Computed example of a mutant assay.
Amino acid sequence: MVTQTPADGLDRAANDAPDGVVERQRPGIAQRAAGLAERAWRPVALLLGIFALWWLVTAAEWIEPYLVPSPGDTIGAITDNPEYFWEHTWTTGYETLLGFVIAAAIGVFAAVVMVYSSTIEKTLYPLLLFAQVIPKIAIAPLFVVWLGFGLGPKIVVAVLMAFFPVVISMVTGLKSIDPEMLQLSATMGAKPAQTFWKIRFPASLPHLFSGLKVAATMAVTGAVVGEFVGADAGLGFVILQANGNLDTPVLFAGLLVMSLLGVLLFVVVEWAEHLLLPWQASRRTDSVTTTM
């Protein structure tokens, strides 16, 4: 009687595996943390270097403080009056989030309509390009005249800024489907709605999330641009008021909080992508096999 040791079983499993494919264990928590640290240390080091250079320039007084405040003065402007910044950040964040959601919904709908109707695509696509090249700061005053000084103009500008990357990415994703997959689904009797939800839409999600990440940062810019034109609250109002008073620490603090808001929304979208698309090529670090 021949007994098989665990090592023999592993060797046989390795020999039975297809050529060019090597099986490996799924990474644990420690390995994932190490991978995250490996990806994060470079941008963190760059940010620390920028802050160190900023501190050096201001500490050496190479630039007058009223032109460029020190990092300490900038952070102090926030910590000295946190309620003030929290209130205005909340206003801009609400406008940004609402504009981003509306832009995503309208952009996905417009992309689907354009893909399924060549007539609408040929009619709508040039108009989208024309609307995109118009500076939003130039037409923002019109929205104030039409919609008043409330949330309406800020949300509209945020939607206009975030809409274009969503619709373009979604159109690209819906059109990137292998025609053989569509022919196969038609041969098997799938209805157009089934083909869309089972094949087209899932395959377009990587492109859609790429557009959403761009739109996340553009929505913040759009909300602040709308606040520049006419507002009594929001980070745009803070920046304008600080600029008028030559209060550069508050001005830099507003810019810093605005940037952090955009980064936060970007990270949320990327986290949603990681959660919903574990099979995406850019997320295959957790796969069980790898091709040699």
Results as ranks from 00 to 15, higher is better:
M1T: 06
V2L: 03
T3V: 07
A7P: 05
G9L: 08
A17M: 08
V21K: 12
R26Q: 03
R26I: 03
G28L: 12
Q31A: 15
Q31V: 14
Q31I: 11
A33C: 07
R42H: 08
L46N: 04
L48M: 15
L53G: 13
W55T: 04
T58W: 05
W62E: 11
I63E: 01
Y66G: 05
V68E: 01
P71C: 12
P71K: 04
D73M: 11
I75A: 09
T79V: 15
N81G: 09
P82E: 02
P82S: 03
F85G: 06
H88T: 11
H88N: 15
W90H: 03
W90S: 06
E95D: 08
G99A: 13
I102V: 13
A104V: 10
A104M: 14
I106K: 06
A110C: 10
V113G: 04
S118V: 09
T119N: 04
L128K: 07
L129H: 01
L129I: 12
L129R: 10
V133T: 14
I134H: 03
A138P: 03
F143A: 00
G148A: 06
G150N: 13
G150Y: 12
G152M: 09
G152V: 06
V157H: 03
V157W: 00
A158N: 00
L160Q: 06
F163K: 04
F163N: 02
F164N: 01
V166P: 00
I168T: 05
V171G: 01
D178A: 03
P179N: 15
E180Y: 10
A186I: 06
A186G: 06
G189R: 13
P192Y: 01
F196H: 04
I199S: 08
R200T: 00
F201T: 02
L205A: 04
H207T: 07
S210Q: 11
S210L: 08
S210N: 10
V214L: 15
V214K: 07
A215N: 01
A215F: 05
T217S: 04
A219S: 08
A219V: 01
A219C: 06
G226C: 08
F228I: 00
V229P: 00
D232T: 13
L235H: 07
L235K: 07
F237T: 09
V238L: 08
V238K: 02
I239S: 11
I239V: 06
I239L: 08
L240D: 04
A242F: 10
G244I: 05
L246W: 11
L246H: 07
D247K: 05
T248M: 13
T248P: 11
P249Q: 05
V250A: 14
L251I: 07
F252I: 08
G254P: 12
L256M: 13
V257E: 01
V257W: 02
M258N: 02
V267N: 13
V267I: 12
V269C: 05
A272F: 14
P278Q: 13
W279C: 08
R283N: 12
R283I: 05
T285I: 00
S287I: 07
S287F: 12
T290H: 14
T291D: 09
M292T: 13
